[in-house]
């Protein structure tokens, strides 16, 4: 099939950036979205143009590196699917596709479609862990965990840290990402001792990074490739309330 791609081009953080248009023939429906961009880039190199920079690594939907806003939707039209797992059979001949980076002031553009998401690492640094130095662990079987809790904790722990939730949120809030970690650790006995300190520190860091507040629009969960539910945010808020009450 033939496609027209409208792609955000920006040389570096200082550049203003603009949309540029490219035509591609011969796109196979079996290609992944990123393979389609590979084909474009191979052509641009030979023609002496600057290829389009985009982040990716595993191309299996698990590393969280890929990050494109496709036709206005973070990770594109297929639900619960990362950009790298999206295939061209979801588009048709003659389509015009716009491709943009995550947009949020806490995620500044580095080049073209590549943004800086190091703010997420700093939120984890603030408290997204259990303090368990190597060697200090008790025998694994001494900590039984009800299957349902382990199950729910796992669901929250599947967050891949991609940042689509931020890109989709009208306030560019990082609530869903932060809440996923709060929920994962908060549901497990190992996470209890640090539970309230953790929520306060992580939320403070989120604010310090310049992410917006959460107004419950739910856009985040609808683009989340791992289906992290909004209940995680309620859980975070409940913990935060208790933490504040505790002072």
């Amino acid at each position: 099939m033939k496609l027209t791609l409208k792609i955000w081009r920006q040389r570096n953080a200082a550049d203003k950036g603009r949309m540029a248009s490219y035509e591609l023939d011969d796109v196979s429906p079996d290609m992944s979205f990123l393979e389609m961009l590979d084909v474009l880039n191979e052509r641009l190199i030979i023609e002496g143009d600057d290829p389009v920079a985009f982040d990716h690594d595993c191309r299996e939907g698990i590393c969280g590196m890929c990050s494109l806003v496709i036709d206005g939707t973070a990770h594109g039209p297929q639900r619960a699917t990362t950009t790298c797992q999206l295939h061209m059979r979801h588009f048709k001949d003659g389509d015009v596709i716009t491709i943009e980076p995550w947009r949020a002031s806490a995620f500044p553009v580095i080049k073209d479609l590549v943004v800086d998401r190091s703010a997420f690492d700093r939120i984890i640094q603030a408290g997204g862990y259990v303090s368990a130095p190597t060697g200090s662990a008790p025998e694994a079987a001494s900590i039984p965990i009800p299957q349902a809790d382990a199950h729910d904790a796992f669901d929250a722990a599947t967050c891949i840290g991609c940042g689509a939730c931020v890109a989709a949120c009208p306030n560019a809030s990082a609530m869903l990402f932060t809440a996923a970690k709060i929920t994962h650790l908060g549901l497990m006995p190992q996470g209890q001792p640090e539970r309230y300190g953790r929520v306060t520190a992580m939320v403070d860091q989120m604010d310090a990074e310049g992410f917006g507040g959460c107004t419950n629009t739910g856009e985040c969960t609808s683009v989340c490739p791992k289906g992290i539910p909004l209940e995680t945010i309620s859980r975070l808020n409940a913990d935060l309330l208790k933490a504040t009450a505790k002072g």
Partner: peptide, 22 residues
């Protein structure tokens, strides 16, 4: 054997049996 202890202590959500054991 120590690895599993370490990972559980960190909060790795391994699959569990009905009784809550690994």
């Amino acid at each position: 054997v120590e690895i599993i202890d370490q990972c559980v202590a960190q909060g790795v959500p391994f699959a569990r049996e009905y009784g809550g054991l690994l």
